[in-house]
Design a protein around this nucleic acid. Sequence first.
DNA 1: TAAATATATGAACAATTATTCATATATAAA
DNA 2: TTTATATATGAATAATTGTTCATATATTTA
Lengths: 121, 121
Amino acid sequence: MDTNNKATELCECTTIHDETICFVKEQMPEEEILYDLAELFKVFGDTTRVKILCALFESEMCVCDISALLGMTQSAISHQLRVLKTAKLIKNRKEGKVVYYSLADDHVKHIFDQGLSHVLE
Amino acid sequence: MDTNNKATELCECTTIHDETICFVKEQMPEEEILYDLAELFKVFGDTTRVKILCALFESEMCVCDISALLGMTQSAISHQLRVLKTAKLIKNRKEGKVVYYSLADDHVKHIFDQGLSHVLE
DNA sequence: TAAATATATGAACAATTATTCATATATAAA
DNA sequence: TTTATATATGAATAATTGTTCATATATTTA
C-alpha cells in the first residue's frame, strides 16, 4: 500500500489516519466520473441557466420567448442554450425559422428539485 | 399585462408567444430563490469540492487526511472546506489541534446521487 | 515559556466564463 | 430573387474563481 508514501509526499502532518484514507480511497468513484459530475453541476451553477431550465419545466419555448421572459438579449440566451444542449439537459425542434427548446428528460427536474429543497429549508 | 411591452423592449421578434410567457412567468419561483439555487449548484461545480464531498460520504476526515487523499496542499483543501461549510454542506468538530469535517445532512448525498445517475446513464 | 504542528486566511496570479457586439446562417414572405 | 426575421456564433471584455505562497492562529508538548 502506498498510502504512507503519498501522505509524506504531499502533507507534512504526522497524525494521519492511514486506514481511513486507504478505505475511503477504495470507495471513491473513478476520477473521470467525478470530473463529469462537477461539469454537470457547473452547468446548473449559473442564474441564467437555472432560470431557463425553470422556465422549460412549465412549457417548451422558443429562443425569443425565453429572451423576452428573462429580459436578456437573444444572443446571451442562445449562448446559454448551447451550453445546456451540450450538457444534454435540453433538446430542440425546429419549426420554420423558430427553434423550440424543451427539457431532455426527467433527470433535470429531479436534480433541480433536490437542490431546491436544500435552498428552501 | 405588460408582457407585450417587455417583449418589444428586449426582443425584436414579433412572433412571441405572449400567453406562454405570461403563464411561465407566473409559475417561476422568486428571483432570489433561483439565485440561491444557482449558488448552491456552483458549490457542487468544482472537481476538488466534489471529491471532498465524495470522501466525506464514507467517513469523517481531518484536513490533513483529505489533503493526503486528494494529493493537494493543505491550504487548497482548507479554502475549499470553507466554501463547503459556508454553503452548509459540511460541518466540523474540533479535537485538539485536529479539525474533523463531515457532511451536514442527507440532502448533500441526494443531490450528489441525482447528478451521478445523470452522468452514468 | 518555547517549539512544534494542524488549520485558517489574505493577497496575488492564472484560468475560466458570461455577456456584448458584430455578423453569419437559414427560412419565410414579398 | 430580394427583404425580413429567428437563431447561431466568433471575438473581445469584464468578472469570477481556484490555487499558491506566505503567514497567522490555536493547541499540544517539551
